[in-house]
Design a protein around this nucleic acid. Structure first.
Lengths: 339, 339
DNA sequence: CAAATTATTTCAAACGTTTGAAATCTATTA
DNA sequence: TAATAGATTTCAAACGTTTGAAATAATTTG
């Protein structure tokens, strides 16, 4: 229970020298005598001196903290992306404070304000489902604190920095893959229409069809808002009319496929073993499923995170101007599941 | 791009009053005139004054930040526990900095040092697999900063605060559940022997057997270190001798069961549909499996997290003495999967 | 209306650093 | 050996708050 905190002043008194000498010695200033440095550094080590970050932040007018706001940590996409952010941030001497909005605008505003008070040097944010107004985030840019939107972003607004998964390319590739495997009737199950990239993915699907001489059939397309009931009914519709009879499915998200597969097994669909599925996610539990998806669209969340923090750091270091808005697309990778 | 930061001084100049009046007005001091308060607060709002946390921390000698060190965020147990921690911390005006050790001691030491520099007011930690030496964590307590170990903890050391899942009770309950369903030959697949609660869980299993008049059979017990190959071979062993022929399995972790189920299906085990499994986890993907576990042992990670932060806050507020070591057990709940 | 209260505001130091400028010490040069 | 240059150390202000003590203003009292 060492009560007196070990500060520069404390070290200075012990060593009978001034606070500035101690500070400079620890920061390896060239004007400080080598022997003095050695003495100071040894004493600092022995007494477990730990520089007070608050004091440094106050003095340097920065915090070396990056704020991250995201909907939640239960979604593997986000936790994996955090991995990339943390890795890169730590390497560059930054810490991150993660704050979950739980897809609630009020909570997101609270988080933003808290991070503003903490004087974060930059912000990485995946907005909540119902963020329409951005004033709580705009305040950062108004103060010169860079903001990078990643994944979930204000799609209509071009005047912000964005790092996104190239969801068009991912969906295109997946559809093409199924076409190459001989499928002619490929169904598409999309996500909620208000989510940014619902459209991009759909376009990837459409374009792949067109580029490969398949015609688009509206009856092969369904949407779900991820609600289980909703998903099931979308799937039912898709298979209701025997004229459709898709032999393959591309899905917005893998869990949709899991529901689809379960449904098809339940109704004992005659072609269950021929139907091939691909979805966004690459969930590690796939290998335990009985009729697993043939492939997954891996969104490389770590890479998305790393690109976001890397861009943010460039903005912080003024290597890129704040108003020189960047948009970075991170390619997806099709992972084929052998068995 | 507002360049001059809005500080108390800035407000004071605008309002032609002293910095202390402004400060006290914002903090609602009773000695400050109501009208003055109103003027100050309005100006602060209009100019988007945001108090500088570094300055406050420096002055108050605390950070209102709680450090959390955990192995990783990919494990749902931890992300769910974070939910509880964050919730409770935010309610009490604390922020959390999460740092992943990736089960690497060096990284854990780094994280600890970083959090020490950040002058966290308290620490919650789930230690890495190979943490034997605790000096990097002991420094916190030496400085009077409370540390609460949760889940993964130094089992041999009683002189520390701990919040743990009641893994004995969970395993007991699960085994009892299977016994009540008529099983006589219940296998147990345990985790790595060096993990703290491997023993507790095993004891839960054993005690449930004994308390219900079943004799313990060493042939029905296997261990795995979670490595896939290792798990498979453990399962093989269990079913190799037809004399064993377990009709139920209790597993240390659900993924073990997934492997087991997959294996049994692969080898077309004759009693596949009669074998009932229970494991720790309550993974949401269970519902998609073809022969899913009959029940899950839900460890209530949110509650574990909440208990950890709640204890930590009591230690910070000196409602509990630092050396009055606490051990809190959070009960598990058996979740039966209907179908 | 001066003195005593009470209400309100301001002063000034402190928290723990950093850093340019000034001061001091040491060694070199003429 | 005094002047100069170079090496090293110290001074002092600043970062943005908080807060007890001191100062001032406004009000009440005798």
């Amino acid at each position: 229970m060492n009560n007196t905190p070990v500060t520069l002043k404390f070290l200075a008194e012990k060593l009978k020298m001034s606070v500035s000498t101690v500070s400079k010695a620890l920061n390896n200033y060239p004007t400080i005598n080598e022997y003095t440095k050695k003495r100071v550094q040894e004493m600092a080590r022995d007494l477990h001196f730990t520089p007070n970050k608050s004091a440094i932040n106050l003095k340097e007018r920065k915090s070396r903290i990056i704020g991250v706001i995201l909907p939640n940590l239960l979604d593997h996409f986000f936790t994996r992306s955090i991995y990339g952010v943390e890795q890169f941030a730590t390497q560059n001497g930054y810490n991150i404070i993660i704050s979950q909005s739980h897809d609630d605008l009020q909570k997101e505003i609270q988080s933003a304000n808290m991070l503003l008070r903490s004087r974060v040097d930059g912000l990485i944010v995946a907005i909540s489902k119902n963020t329409q107004d951005f004033s709580h985030l705009d305040q950062f840019e108004n103060l010169g604190i860079p903001v990078v939107y990643y994944t979930r972003n204000p799609s209509f607004n071009l005047n912000c920095h964005k790092v996104l998964g190239n969801t068009f390319q991912g969906c295109y590739q997946a559809t093409k893959f199924l076409i190459d495997r001989g499928h002619k009737k490929i169904a598409y199950i999309g996500g909620p229409k208000m989510i940014n990239f619902t459209h991009d993915r759909f376009n990837g699907y459409i374009n792949a069809l067109k580029d490969n001489g398949l015609s688009f059939d509206a009856d092969l397309v369904a949407y779900t808002d991820f609600d289980k009931e909703n998903t099931i009914s979308a799937i039912k519709n898709l298979f209701a009319n025997p004229a459709n009879n898709p032999t393959a499915i591309v899905a917005f998200k893998e869990p949709i496929l899991f529901d689809a597969i379960k449904y098809l097994r339940n109704i004992k669909h005659p072609n269950i073993n021929e139907i091939e599925c691909v979805g966004f996610g690459n969930n590690s539990f796939i290998s335990y499923l009985d009729s697993p998806p043939v492939a997954s669209i891996e969104e490389n969340p770590e890479s998305v995170g790393e690109n976001a923090i890397s861009l943010l750091l460039k903005l912080i270091n003024k290597e890129i101007d704040l108003d020189n808005y960047q948009k970075i697309m991170v390619d997806c990778k099709l992972v084929v599941h052998e068995d």
